[in-house]
Amino acid sequence: MQEADYLIIGHGLAGATLAYTLRRRGRRVLVLDQYQPDSATRVAAGLINPVAGKRFALAWRIQDFLPAARAFYKELEAELGRPLYHEKPILKLFGSVREQNDVLARSAGNPWGDYVADPAQPLPEVPGLEQPFGGLELRHGGWLDTAAMLDGLAEDGRQNGWLRAETFKPELLVADAGGASYGPGLRVRRVVFCEGHAATANPWFGWLPLTPNQGEVLDVEAPDLPTDYVLNRGAYVVPVGEGRVRVGATYRWPPFSPEPTAEARAELSQRLHELTRTPFRVTGQRAGIRPAVRDRKPLLGTHPAHPALAVFNGLGSKGVLLAPRLAELLADALETGAELWPEVNIIRYQALYPVTLPPAATPA
């Protein structure tokens, strides 16, 4: 019988960062994952934005997350021997006089620290860019080539035997006081579910309040757009090299479309038209389903009745920023019993757990 310390279900952003973190600690890890070309991680532009949202506030715990993300992705770049993390300033362009006034009024107290350049300084003049209301330059942002990261790790996983290209079958999993068995040939100390939006059907963690939403992005040829900045006004525009940019993203609540939609293509094209006078050509369109959570905080922790089972999910649209630090946090909790942050611990949703059901190690 094969033995491992951890069985990880899913190799998207959550599963990949957790598996790497645990393997870096010397743990024996096995990952089960069935490749999906339009998974949320592969569709995402991988944007790291330190200041975002309608309130234009600093991202949650940015001082914890950003240094951890930068160090993690740079280490991974060196190990995989390929560029992954691209640090670029973000030009946040105002869409109206009202937005301009609201944000500049808030700037008096310098609420953003070093993450925003001096608001009194004008933005750089960028040929072809529409910026009638001005904007701000955000520092320490950038983007991660998520597909390249997953491809590099998956190649290593196949070569070294820690990644299996197979679909997880819940009926084969049996949890007990000492760990868990999967089928007749595998025994592990813990199982961690990193399934993204598919966790809504998970027999052990389906009670958690995941609220998936669908996002679409465009791949665009725009050789005249600037390559030194990520652009943001109503949509993000991420330069990905060779005169190409990625434009996104839309938000759609269920029911989801099985294919990319004409409506999303028109919406994102219009947003790009409003941003630039330079010509561009849409070359591709993709849709993925994000694993979001009701309170917009991720889901980490062990099962209330089966401590050998754990979950790492709900990273949402800021997953690239959050995943490395949260993977360390969960690894510490699983390895040493360290406390999880209350904002992410699934115990905050304990009231939703169906305690009326008879305790069972396997789904009915």
Rank of each mutant, 00 (worst) to 15 (best):
M1F: 00
Y6F: 15
L7Y: 07
I9F: 10
H11A: 09
G12E: 02
L13N: 12
A14C: 06
G15L: 01
A16Q: 02
A16I: 02
R25S: 03
G26C: 09
R27Q: 13
R27H: 12
R28S: 03
V29A: 01
L30E: 08
Y35D: 14
P37C: 04
D38K: 04
A40Q: 04
V43M: 01
P50Y: 11
K54V: 06
A57F: 05
L58N: 06
A59V: 07
Q63R: 15
Q63A: 14
D64Q: 14
P67K: 01
A68S: 11
Y73V: 06
Y73S: 04
K74R: 15
K74E: 15
L76N: 09
L80N: 12
R82W: 08
L84N: 13
L84C: 10
L84M: 13
L84F: 11
P89C: 01
A108M: 07
A108V: 14
Y115S: 06
V116Y: 00
A120V: 07
P122G: 12
L123E: 10
E125C: 06
V126F: 09
P127F: 08
Q131I: 03
Q131G: 03
F133Q: 14
G134W: 00
L136P: 01
H140N: 12
G141I: 11
G142P: 09
T146Q: 13
M149D: 07
L153R: 09
A154E: 15
G157V: 02
W162Q: 04
E166K: 11
T167E: 13
K169N: 14
E171L: 09
L172A: 11
V174G: 03
D176A: 11
D176N: 13
G178M: 10
G178R: 14
P184F: 06
R187C: 09
V188K: 03
R189N: 03
V191A: 07
V191F: 07
E195F: 05
A198C: 05
P203G: 13
L208D: 08
P209K: 00
N213P: 02
N213G: 09
Q214T: 03
Q214R: 13
D219C: 08
A222W: 10
D228A: 15
D228P: 02
V230K: 05
R233E: 11
V240T: 14
V240E: 09
G241F: 07
R244P: 06
V245W: 08
R246P: 04
A249M: 08
P254V: 07
P254Q: 12
P260W: 05
E263M: 03
A264Q: 04
E267Q: 11
Q270L: 09
L275Q: 04
T278H: 13
R281A: 12
R281C: 06
G284I: 08
A292H: 04
V293E: 02
R294M: 09
L299E: 11
T302N: 04
T302W: 03
H303Q: 10
P304I: 06
L309Q: 08
V311M: 03
G316E: 15
S317Q: 12
K318H: 12
K318C: 08
L329H: 15
A331Q: 05
A333Q: 00
L334Y: 10
T336G: 01
A338F: 07
E339D: 15
P342H: 12
E343R: 07
E343I: 05
V344N: 10
Y349S: 05
Q350M: 00
Q350H: 00
Y353H: 14
T356G: 08
L357Q: 15
P358H: 14
P358Q: 15
A364D: 08
